[in-house]
Design a binder for these strands. Structure first.
Lengths: 127, 127
DNA sequence: ATTATATGTTAGAAAAACTGACATACAGTG
DNA sequence: CACTGTATGTCAGTTTTTCTAACATATAAT
């Protein structure tokens, strides 16, 4: 999809992403360390972020504020990328893991709603 | 207009603008020197460009390739910003200046067409 | 032949970003 | 209560990026 290509263009330096997300450089790098984002690198090894990355960072921020930890956030993103898990089909996640995630999601249900809204926050920056 | 605000947000470093426009840093700074763009500055004095700036740079590039010089480009932008000149009304530009510009525009008419298209080139980067 | 224009190149300085290490607040657990 | 793990702060030393200013140069205009 060409719109994916656009939104995934690595145009933004870390300082701009800090402003856009209100996260510290430390936090952004930490989330990368945990594989939640994979910013592009320049020849000189500087991180370059796409608008997609910024969206993801805003989601991470919201979920953290809701008390979900890295592991939980990772699972949530995994679920997004693989709808199969929603059918509880061939997923490689243990039953206890799955129950844990679902329980968490239940408990945070209303606030998750707020998260979904928050996701759209960045739309004002492109188009 | 809020869409103006979006497109005028200074998000891009000069190296990214170089990639996007295929201009050198020297060229970009030279055009700024001639007041064709006014990039924002960080606290540390680094230039930060908006998508609008990039569009303008692409227009400058096209016009230069068509043989229009800085002065001509300046006038073209002035005309854009002040539609009054199109009516040849209260403009502060001398008659000879005006004739010169118009002659230039005539001669480059077909290619100016191409320029207008070129302006839209960047649309693929936002939305 | 001279001048002006647009751009290249270089040097030295300053800002921004990187990694890695150590510090710490807070939550959860035995 | 002491202990541990998690997410983040902070600092040091280094590298990359960007800045200005100056000088060089090719091409076009006079």
């Amino acid at each position: 999809m060409s719109s994916e290509i656009r939104r995934s263009m690595p145009l933004l330096s870390i300082s701009i992403v800090m402003q856009l997300t209100d996260l510290t450089a430390r936090q952004i790098r930490y989330y990368e360390e945990h594989d939640l984002i994979q910013p592009h690198r320049t020849e000189g090894n500087r991180r370059m972020f796409s608008l997609n990355d910024v969206d993801i960072l805003l989601e991470i921020k919201d979920m953290l504020e809701q008390g979900i930890n890295m592991a939980g956030i990772k699972k949530v993103f995994d679920m997004k990328n693989d709808p199969a898990i929603q059918q509880a089909s061939k997923e490689v996640i243990s039953d206890s893991d799955l129950r844990k995630i679902l329980r968490e999601e239940m408990r945070q249900a209303q606030r998750m709603q707020k998260t979904s809204l928050r996701q759209g926050d960045l739309s004002r920056f492109y188009q």
